[in-house]
Simulated scan of single mutants.
Amino acid sequence: MRWRFRQISDLAVLWAGHRAVPATLIILAVLWAVVGLHFSFPRQWFLLTNMVGTLIVFFILLLVQHAQNRDMMALQTKLDELIRSSKAGNHWIAAEKNEAEAIEEMRRQHHDQIRETMN
């Protein structure tokens, strides 16, 4: 089940991120408005359209967030392995799990060390 969800998620993210999608959606929205005005669709029809559009956008947002979270976890794992296999200090491994203040302090210490070695 997870594999299928990931496959669907990847496909939806790929589709939603294609450069032709915004232009297609704008054309569809203009056509929908023109047809609606021409045939005098009732207000409920436009409310239904608004609700469906909102749900689709929300669904795609969740899929994109899922893909971004997975990509970020993979990137962090790769960085941790690079740190582990290099001469860098192991205190940098999993730094993203620290609080923002602790990360900022680590960054300051790192910059101070760089300045000391340059002088």
Rank of each mutant, 00 (worst) to 15 (best):
R2E: 11
W45Q: 08
I93E: 03
L75F: 06
M118T: 11
S40A: 12
M72G: 02
A33C: 08
F59P: 00
H38A: 15
A67R: 14
M72K: 07
H110R: 07
V34R: 06
V64W: 07
Q113D: 14
S86T: 01
L79W: 13
K97G: 04
W45E: 09
A33W: 15
I8L: 12
L82H: 10
G36S: 07
I103A: 10
L14N: 11
W92T: 00
I83A: 00
T77K: 10
N69D: 04
R4E: 09
L37T: 04
L25T: 12
Q76P: 00
A67K: 14
L61V: 06
R115P: 02
E116R: 15
T117V: 10
L48D: 07
F5C: 03
A23Y: 15
R2G: 11
I8M: 12
W45L: 08
V35F: 15
K78T: 09
V64N: 08
T24Q: 15
E99D: 04
L47R: 09
E116C: 05
A95L: 11
N90G: 09
M106R: 14
R6V: 00
F59K: 03
G36F: 11
Q68M: 05
L28M: 14
K78I: 02
A88I: 13
M106I: 05
G36W: 07
S85D: 05
L47H: 13
S86G: 04
W15L: 08
L14M: 10
P42M: 02
H18T: 03
L61P: 02
E104N: 09
R84P: 09
G89P: 07
S40L: 10
Q65G: 03
F46G: 06
R43F: 05
T117R: 15
E101N: 04
T77R: 13
L25Q: 15
D71V: 00
G17S: 10
N90M: 09
G17F: 11
R115C: 00
G89C: 05
E116F: 02
L31N: 03
E116Y: 07
K97T: 05
L25E: 15
Q68N: 03
V30P: 03
A67H: 12
I103Y: 09
